[in-house]
Simulated scan of single mutants.
Amino acid sequence: MDRIILRQSLENYRTPFEEESEFVDEFIELTFDDSAFLRSRLEGHFTGSAWIVNKRRTHTLLTLHKKLNRWLQLGGHADGVENLLEVSMQEAREESGLTSLRLVGNGIFDIDKHIIPQKGDIPEHFHYDVRYLIEAELNEPLTISNESTDLAWIPFDSVDDMVGHNPSILRMLEKTSRSEFAL
């Protein structure tokens, strides 16, 4: 059932960003694959992420990913769970320690297909990342997980420098300032 809801959400998903709209059909097609929610699907699989912002929309929470050594949004593998909002919220809690997490809007915020480099005996593969806009309290204490080397609330005007001009993250930042997601 969750897979059907995801497919319908993707079919109804609209974005003004050409680079994002180019792979919507691929995401939809992937929902028909029984193994798409498992990391054992080595050519690529679904992941769920949380673009976490504070209520005033001045900061985003980023993690310095231990394996990739890059500042990224929080998220992770579906590991068989077809409800990617549930995956995103669980990963956000586990990776930050935050309990004040709240979904903003009523569905998918962003999607991104990106390559993950080979690590040990795991070959290079794609992550089909479905992202949700999540709001949290800026003053709530943070807990760094074993998947990160750092975790920080980054002011919006510093995100570009922090993420090394990552177009996917900059797209989410731009979306956050749009009227439907602004305060």
Rank of each mutant, 00 (worst) to 15 (best):
K66V: 07
K67F: 08
L68S: 07
Q73S: 08
Q73N: 09
Q73H: 05
L74G: 03
G75I: 02
G75F: 01
G75D: 02
D79R: 14
G80R: 13
G80K: 13
V81L: 11
V81C: 15
E82C: 10
L84H: 05
E86Y: 12
E86L: 11
V87Q: 04
S88W: 01
S88M: 02
M89W: 00
Q90D: 12
Q90I: 04
Q90F: 04
A92K: 01
A92L: 01
R93A: 12
R93C: 13
E94I: 07
E94Q: 14
E95F: 03
E95Y: 03
S96P: 04
T99W: 00
S100D: 03
S100I: 03
L101M: 09
L101Y: 09
L103D: 08
G105Q: 05
N106C: 00
N106T: 03
G107N: 05
I108G: 10
F109V: 07
F109P: 02
I111F: 12
D112A: 11
K113E: 08
K113Q: 14
H114Y: 15
I115L: 08
I115N: 02
P117M: 05
P117W: 02
Q118M: 14
Q118A: 15
G120H: 09
D121R: 13
D121A: 10
D121V: 10
I122R: 15
P123W: 12
P123I: 10
E124M: 09
E124P: 01
E124C: 06
E124I: 05
H125G: 08
H125A: 07
H125V: 05
Y128M: 10
V130G: 02
R131W: 01
Y132H: 03
Y132W: 04
Y132Q: 02
E135P: 04
A136T: 06
E137P: 01
E137M: 11
N139H: 13
N139W: 06
N139S: 15
N139A: 11
E140N: 09
L142E: 13
T143A: 14
T143C: 07
T143V: 15
I144A: 04
S145E: 05
N146R: 09
E147W: 10
E147A: 15
S148H: 15
D150T: 12
D150I: 13
D150Q: 14
L151W: 06
A152C: 04
A152K: 12
W153M: 07
